[in-house]
Simulated scan of single mutants.
Amino acid sequence: MPYVRHWLRNSVLLFAVAIALGLVAAHTQLIQPHDLDLDRTIQTGTRTGWLNDVMLGVSYLASPVAGVVILAVWTGWLLFVRRTPTRAVATFLVVAVGWNSTQIAKAIVARNRPPRQFSLDPEIGSNSFPSGHTAFTVAVAVAAYFLFRDSRHRTKVAVCGVLAVCLVAFSRMYIGAHYPTDTLGSVLVAGSAILFLTGIWHAWLLPRLHRVPLLDRFGLEREQAALEAARGGHTEPGANGTYGAHGAHSPYGQQGGRRRAAGPQGGRHRRHAGR
């Protein structure tokens, strides 16, 4: 996980912008009519029988139930199969924090859903802003990019992540569950939460992972030794080109290894990792 300069200030500002956007969209007429017009344009101009099924399927793949399954399988694979507990914990936190941060914004903004008569899958309540489905996809895309950001696949992962976010956001507008600003707000809210997490990770969480006895059973000490080797230039790339238990391309590795070596303050001097 990269260390980002000014993470606290930037995360608070980004969240404030998201909330301001949501309040204006929900409680004034500056955005609401345009949001509704764009929703109706998408629905009347693109809806067909087969595409309805596709968009509903895409939406279900990012639903709360599917999201929990995806997160459990992904982090379980990193922990039990790859034996990389640092990556497993970091991935779980990025997705969980980025996804669930929307609940705070939903409670503050309290925006009603689009009119139900235009929805293929009606949802009720004052919880339209931001879109939880879109926020989940944003968090998954960011977590995947963090895993591959030091590998040759980082550009492909970034492009696929952006396309996935756009597809899910479009599906939520297509089926009539959200307004366009709801999906934009998801990117801002999830982004602010993940940005905040990067600071907490380096300042408090990463230096304390060794205090969790369970992680030692899954190779935490070996993983940290590999990180130290990577930091010292003695590397052994994994077979798939990314960091494994003995690899050189750790998305959290250099930060993690240096943190352990340099002590509690070491992470603050590795600011280049976030660039």
Rank of each mutant, 00 (worst) to 15 (best):
Ser101His: 13
Cys166Met: 15
Thr183Leu: 13
Ala26Leu: 15
Arg270Trp: 13
Tyr252Phe: 12
Gly257Trp: 07
Arg111Cys: 02
Ala169Thr: 11
Leu195Asp: 11
Thr235Met: 14
Val157Trp: 01
Val69Pro: 09
Leu206Met: 14
Asp150Arg: 00
Thr242Val: 14
Ala20Ser: 13
Glu228Leu: 10
Trp50Thr: 08
Gly176Pro: 03
Ala190Phe: 10
His153Val: 12
Asp39Trp: 02
Val94Lys: 07
His178Trp: 06
Gly161Phe: 06
Ser250Arg: 01
Leu30Thr: 12
Ser101Asn: 09
Ile31Met: 05
His249Asn: 05
Arg258Glu: 14
Leu206Asn: 09
Gly132Phe: 05
Arg83Glu: 07
His178Arg: 09
Asn112Ala: 13
Leu147Tyr: 08
Phe218Arg: 02
Val73Asn: 04
His133Cys: 03
Asn100His: 07
Gly191Lys: 02
Trp204Arg: 10
Val69His: 08
Val68Thr: 05
Val109Asp: 02
Ala239Val: 15
His210Lys: 13
Gly161Val: 05
Leu220Gly: 11
Val189Met: 04
His272Pro: 05
Gln117Arg: 06
Leu195Pro: 14
Gly238Phe: 00
Pro115Trp: 14
His210Gly: 14
Ala245Gln: 11
Asn112Cys: 02
Gly263Arg: 08
Thr242Gln: 10
Thr181Tyr: 15
Leu14Trp: 02
Asp53Met: 07
Trp99Ile: 00
Arg152Thr: 02
Thr102Asn: 01
Pro85Leu: 12
Ala239Arg: 13
Ala26Pro: 12
Arg208Leu: 08
Gly241His: 03
His246Tyr: 05
Ala139Glu: 05
Ser186His: 05
Ala144Lys: 04
Gln43Trp: 07
Ser126Asn: 14
Gly161Ile: 02
Pro85Thr: 15
Gly257Phe: 04
Pro33Phe: 03
Thr86Glu: 03
Arg113Phe: 02
Gly45Leu: 05
